[in-house]
Computed example of a mutant assay.
Amino acid sequence: MSDAAFDLDAYFARVHLPARPSVDHLGLGVLQRAHRLAIPFENLDVLLGRGIAIDSASVFAKLVTAGRGGYCFEHNRLFLDALLALGFDARPLLARVWIAATDVPPLTHTFSLVTIGEEQWIADTGFGGSYTPPMPLIDGAQATAPDGALFRLDRAGEHGWMLLRDGDLATTDGRGSGTGFQPQYSFETRSVFAADLALSNHWTSTAPVSRFLHTGVVSIVLPNGFASLTDTTYKRRAGSDETRAEITDPRVYRLRLSMMFGITLSAEEVAALGVVAG
Rank of each mutant, 00 (worst) to 15 (best):
S2N: 06
A4V: 09
A4S: 13
A5I: 09
F6C: 03
D9T: 13
A10V: 02
R14P: 04
R14V: 06
H16M: 11
L17W: 11
A19D: 11
R20D: 10
R20N: 08
R20T: 15
S22M: 01
D24H: 07
H25E: 14
L28K: 14
G29W: 05
R33I: 01
R36K: 14
R36A: 15
A38I: 07
I39P: 02
I39C: 08
N43D: 02
N43E: 02
D45E: 08
D45I: 07
D45R: 07
V46W: 04
L47T: 12
L47H: 11
G51L: 08
I52N: 03
I54K: 11
D55N: 14
S56H: 15
S58N: 08
G67Y: 13
G70Y: 08
Y71N: 10
Y71H: 07
C72E: 00
F73T: 03
E74I: 12
H75V: 10
N76P: 13
L78H: 00
F79Q: 15
L83Y: 05
L83H: 06
A85F: 14
A85R: 02
G87W: 00
D89L: 13
A90F: 04
R91V: 05
R91C: 13
L93R: 01
L93P: 04
A95V: 12
W98K: 08
I99S: 03
D103E: 14
P106N: 04
P106F: 05
P106C: 04
L107T: 02
L107I: 04
T110W: 01
F111I: 04
L113T: 06
I116C: 06
G117M: 10
E118H: 07
E119S: 06
D124Y: 10
T125K: 01
G126M: 00
G129Y: 02
G129L: 04
G129N: 00
P133F: 13
P134K: 03
L137F: 05
L137M: 03
I138A: 08
D139V: 00
G140Y: 04
A145Q: 09
A145Y: 14
P146D: 11
L150P: 09
F151S: 01
A156G: 15
G160V: 00
W161I: 13
W161K: 06
L163A: 11
L164E: 10
L164Y: 02
L164H: 12
D166M: 06
D173E: 15
R175L: 01
S177I: 01
S177F: 07
S177M: 10
G178I: 07
G178K: 00
F181Q: 10
Q182L: 09
Q182M: 09
Q182H: 04
Q184F: 03
Q184Y: 03
R190S: 12
V192T: 11
V192M: 01
A198M: 07
H202M: 06
A207V: 02
P208R: 05
R211K: 15
L213S: 08
H214M: 09
V217G: 00
V217M: 15
V217F: 03
I220T: 08
L222I: 02
L229W: 00
T232R: 13
T233A: 15
T233P: 12
K235H: 07
K235A: 07
R236K: 11
A238F: 04
G239P: 09
D241E: 15
D241H: 08
E242Y: 06
E242F: 12
I247E: 03
R254S: 09
L257Y: 11
L257V: 09
S258D: 09
M259S: 13
G262R: 08
T264R: 15
V270D: 05
A272W: 10
A272K: 11
